[in-house]
Design a protein around this nucleic acid. Structure first.
Lengths: 120, 120
DNA sequence: GAACAAGATCACTATATCGCCACTTAACGA
DNA sequence: TCGTTAAGTGGCGATATAGTGATCTTGTTC
């Protein structure tokens, strides 16, 4: 069910499409960016709050945020001196949720496999 | 709806979890790897077939495949001289499907915005 | 066993990116 | 206008990774 045997119904993605999709996934491929998103899942945060919460430098956080913004995943809004950040695309939550639960399954599976009968 | 205002119900992910999740997304962050997966969505393929279909070198394809294998997304099976590859985790299809349709929405949105009344 | 074919691995170059420091820019208050 | 603070930007060193050619390994065939 996970594979489509009929070549006529499957489309080969164009190089441009592949680049765009890869770019989106690349935005999610850094632990620090995931950490920022994880904090934003609690609600809006200023850059300063994210700097403090992430434990990284201000310049670094600012650059990671611009990557997320260019990927359309985070939005920002100026509020006086501060910049308020928020998750702009709900797909972020879905993707992370999926990946998380998938990893949990795998880990539990491996743990169970190690619990008894470590290879007959 | 996409954000959780209650801090008590949101969990902050551990650094280890962030690394694991980031690694999975990183496996999907290269156009060439997405191309390989895209071909595998039609069904099993040997390494040689993927080399031909992808238009890249054999060494390069082999390395990308090992990245995908380590990420648990692709499985392989020896069959004589050849190595048969297949998608081992159905999450790959879901993730790519989601990303694809999301991008389509965005592009169509932008196209529609450009069609008429380019800013009043 | 020798020749051969498929694929994995190694060595290398080029490029990209992370984290940090310093500096600049922008908005606010006195 | 000046000083202060929040955040963006540029430069730098270190590391990581893509792609390529050469080599090694393994299984097949004669």
């Amino acid at each position: 069910m996970t594979q489509n045997k009929n070549p006529a119904t499957r489309k080969e993605l164009s190089p441009l499409a592949l680049d765009l999709i890869a770019a989106r996934f690349r935005a999610l491929s850094e632990p620090m960016r995931l950490r920022l998103l994880n904090h934003l899942m609690d609600g809006e945060r200023t850059v300063g709050q994210l700097v403090e919460a992430s434990g990284s430098g201000q310049a670094n956080v600012s650059k990671h945020l611009s990557v997320l913004r260019e990927a359309g995943m985070v939005g920002t809004r100026k509020q006086g001196l501060m910049t308020v950040c928020y998750i702009a695309d709900p797909i972020v939550n879905e993707l992370c949720e999926m990946m998380c639960s998938r990893l949990r399954e795998e880990m539990e599976g491996k743990a169970a496999a190690l619990a008894f009968k470590p290879e007959s």
